[in-house]
């Protein structure tokens, strides 16, 4: 069966259904706990107008109170006007404080320096400039930078290293895109944000699914069986109805991008080396958390 056909399999999706109240309880607790352990009260995050950052904003507002969540819109000159409006709808609905920091004047000088630059390189520069902006606001406001990545894109490596992946905590990175839509509905994220085609909005007309070459629903079902349920690629193909070739394509992508999900290797020469045998949790210092 072709993965792009209109009759692409969807029968695995219902197995990924979640109790959104329970998810909200765990994730808001996680946010509160992380911020308390850092000795802070606030979060700062980019708000793109898409569903992931919207969900992250709703969870953060629930966890910390809207007065403790600063959201930043960081459009580039090619960003769509609708993205700004959708972000505005979230800001108004939650009563968040917000800033708009146009990244064009910061990004363009570097892009202009290399006239033959690909869209991918430009997109990476934009994502990293947004990270710089967020970390600057983090320092200015005593706020932790909230992640907005989901499990699907994290596994696929559909992210910019030190760009959108450069954050202090990841509240929704264990939820697949399908589950993000579920929790978005439960949290009351505006409908137009839930229903529009996901886009990194790095250049005009870009959509995630065009760029990836498959739909999130397809990737979610395959990844869920491979990762969560430990099916083999053959079993996944048989269970989903996707071709084995497609399943392998997804899995190869997961493997190829593993470096984005791990810390850089440290060459070991001493008796005791950070990351190898100097082992402490991230949470082992600092203040006590709070549920």
């Amino acid at each position: 069966m072709s993965d792009s056909s209109m009759t692409a399999p969807t029968h695995i999706l219902s197995r990924m259904d979640i109790n959104t109240d329970l998810a909200t309880q765990i994730l808001t607790g996680f946010i509160r706990d992380n911020i308390a352990k850092a000795g802070l009260k606030k979060a700062v995050m980019g708000l793109s107008g898409g569903i992931d950052s919207a969900v992250s904003a709703y969870l953060s507002a629930k966890a910390l109170g809207p007065e403790n969540v600063l959201v930043i819109r960081m459009p580039y000159k090619t960003s769509s006007e609708n993205s700004l409006l959708d972000a505005e709808a979230v800001i108004e609905d939650l009563g968040l404080s917000s800033l708009t920091v146009e990244i064009t004047p910061m990004v363009d000088p570097l892009i202009e320096r290399f006239p033959d630059m690909s869209n991918l390189r430009k997109g990476n520069i934009m994502a990293r400039m947004r990270m710089i902006t967020l970390y600057d606001q983090s320092m200015a406001n005593g706020a932790l930078v909230m992640g907005t990545s989901n499990k699907t894109e994290f596994l696929l490596g559909y992210s910019t290293i030190y760009g959108d992946s450069g954050v202090a905590l990841h509240p929704i990175a264990d939820l697949y895109k399908y589950q993000i839509r579920q929790i978005a509905r439960a949290l009351g994220v505006p409908r137009q944000i839930i229903h529009k085609a996901p886009s990194a909005d790095l250049w005009e007309g870009q959509t995630d699914e065009d760029e990836l070459g498959f739909t999130y629903d397809a990737a979610d079902q395959v990844l869920y069986l491979l990762v969560d349920e430990r099916y083999t690629t053959e079993e996944t193909a048989a269970e989903t109805g996707f071709s084995h070739e497609f399943v392998c394509k997804i899995w190869e992508r997961v493997k190829a991008n593993h470096y984005k999900r791990t810390m850089p290797n440290i060459a070991k020469v001493s008796q005791r080396t950070i990351g190898h045998d100097f082992l402490y949790l991230r949470d082992y210092t600092g203040r006590h958390g709070s549920v």
Binding site: F30, D174, V291
Partner: peptide
């Protein structure tokens, strides 16, 4: 027990 350690609840 309750609480969080890194990402675990």
């Amino acid at each position: 027990r309750v609480g969080y350690e890194d990402g675990k609840v």
